Amino acid sequence: MDIEPIQTVCDRVREQVRKTVVGQDAALDLMLVALLSEGHVLLEGVPGTAKTLLAQSFARSVNLDFGRIQFTPDLMPGDVLGTNLFNFQTSDFKLTKGPVFTQILLADEINRTPPKTQAALLQAMHERAVTIDGATHPLGDDFMVIATQNPIEQQGTYPLPEAQLDRFLFKHILDYPARDEERAIVARHGHRTVMPDLADFGLEAVADAAALADIRKVIAGLRLSDELIDYIVDIVRATREHESLEFGASPRSANMIATAARALAAMQGRDYVIPDDVKFIALPALRHRVVLSPGAEIEGLAADAVIRQVLDQIPAPR
């Protein structure tokens, strides 16, 4: 497979998702990048900004199994992973799989459950496998978590641990739609108050697991110059030295940015990465991996502003 079919597949996925979702193009592009680079996405936004509809439509368009977990304060790790139950007829234990055994998993309102249950996804997100009673069960190369969370300022939320956040390739903030987009939403969905049936919109699967595997092989071989490797490493290391940050980004984030930049380049029809790819990826890839210093919080600085300062300070290769 060459580069041109990759761009075509991505364009067709966008076309299908836009049958149901109005706007949110940036979120859709990041989800595509994450899928092609084997990453996970955290979507943050107030209720009613189409987070769930976007995830469902995306899974349907790429013909992958879709599962959903509604995270609540009383959810337990076994409710996510599954458990071994004793079968009295056969006198042995049988695994009852939890909802994590799928391909695209919507972890809805993930920050409304305590950290103990959030941690049930740590191994799944990093290793694409889960261990239950000492036995490891693979989840497959297409396993992807699309998690949603409400803004942390809302009642009944728990902050995600740093180890959990570091496993997300991207954190994207969903804003309210523009007026023309909101009008289009009402025109399209204003005759119902419940979640629309995707079948009513004629969504078609325009890719499958085999095609995605071929695309990932091509992306892994895309050119990333030594200068761009230095650029990525310098950006990540600069977050650890910035006076406004108490903790900077992890070494894992540099690997993730490099992989995601390759995927973005392929989506745009190029077999090589350019600095603009890295700049586009850097903000959603780093905003959840840094921790502001107490002084920066008192001054009202935001992580996004600090990361933009870092990007301005590090000269991009020519």
Rank of each mutant, 00 (worst) to 15 (best):
Q164P: 01
D142T: 11
D175K: 09
R192H: 08
H189F: 13
D142P: 06
T193L: 13
R167E: 01
M144Y: 06
L198F: 13
V236T: 06
A199D: 15
L174A: 01
H172L: 06
V145A: 08
K217L: 15
E181N: 01
V236K: 08
E227V: 01
A187W: 07
V145W: 04
I219S: 08
D197S: 15
F168P: 10
V194F: 09
I152T: 11
N150W: 04
F201E: 11
I146R: 08
D234T: 11
D142A: 14
A211E: 12
R188A: 12
L224M: 10
R192Y: 00
I152M: 09
R179F: 06
N150I: 05
V218N: 03
M195F: 14
L139T: 11
G140I: 08
I173G: 10
D142W: 10
L222M: 06
A210G: 06
T157N: 02
P138W: 03
D200L: 13
L212T: 01
I215T: 04
L160K: 02
Q149T: 02
G221K: 12
H191R: 15
P138A: 03
Y231N: 13
I232V: 15
E182N: 09
L174F: 02
G221S: 13
R167A: 03
A210I: 12
I185N: 02
Y231I: 11
F201C: 11
T148Q: 06
Q149W: 03
D200C: 11
R188S: 15
E153C: 07
N150Q: 03
I232D: 13
L165K: 00
D208Q: 09
A220T: 09
I215F: 08
Q154P: 12
P138R: 00
R188C: 12
R223D: 07
M144Q: 14
F168S: 05
I173A: 14
L169A: 09
A205S: 10
E162V: 02
D200P: 03
P138G: 04
L174H: 06
V186A: 14
K171P: 07
A178R: 00
V194Y: 14
P151L: 00
M144C: 08
N150R: 05
H191G: 13
P151A: 00
F143P: 00
A209L: 11
Y231P: 10
A187S: 15
G156C: 01
G140Y: 00
D141E: 10
D234A: 12
G221I: 07
I232F: 10
A147M: 07
V186Y: 12
V145Q: 07
F143E: 04
M195T: 08
D197W: 10
